[in-house]
Amino acid sequence: MPEAYEPKIVAFFCNWCTYLAADLAGTSRLKYAPNARVIRVMCSGRVDPQFVMEAFGDGADGVLIGGCHPGDCHYQEGNYKALRRFHLLKRMVKQMGIEEERLRLEWISASEGDRVRAVIDDMVARLKELGPRRRAPSREEVLVG
């Protein structure tokens, strides 16, 4: 009997905000879906789009990038670089057949443990609807123009 599809999310969390928020979700014993795999980076500005490509290529169904709110970056501006890259990357992966909801950038501050829970649960729900990425997609559905 084939296993039910459980989406795999690779989550790049910045050390100072989102990672701490996920820790807070833990200390608060909030409960959410176990589908995320967290990779800790010091800043969302470290997230190289190559990592996103690698994650999808290795079988991730979704990629989540978590950073500090604009203006609050521990390293002052790293999250702005992440934001600019993300906007451009979003446009490009859409052309390459990755549905919009598979790649997400969320600003989550260290005190927002509940947002970690909410974002992951929401992303899992949407990815379940979209199905696994590794099936040969119906490309016509996602072509641009």
Partner: peptide, 26 residues
């Protein structure tokens, strides 16, 4: 030293954009 050319080139040009607000970036 680069595994994925397109993604890396995008990373460099993308981060060098001056704008900080989403609308201005777009």
């Amino acid at each position: 030293r680069v595994r994925d050319y397109g993604a890396k080139a995008l990373s460099a040009l993308g981060a060098s954009i001056e704008a900080t607000e989403p609308e201005a970036i777009d």
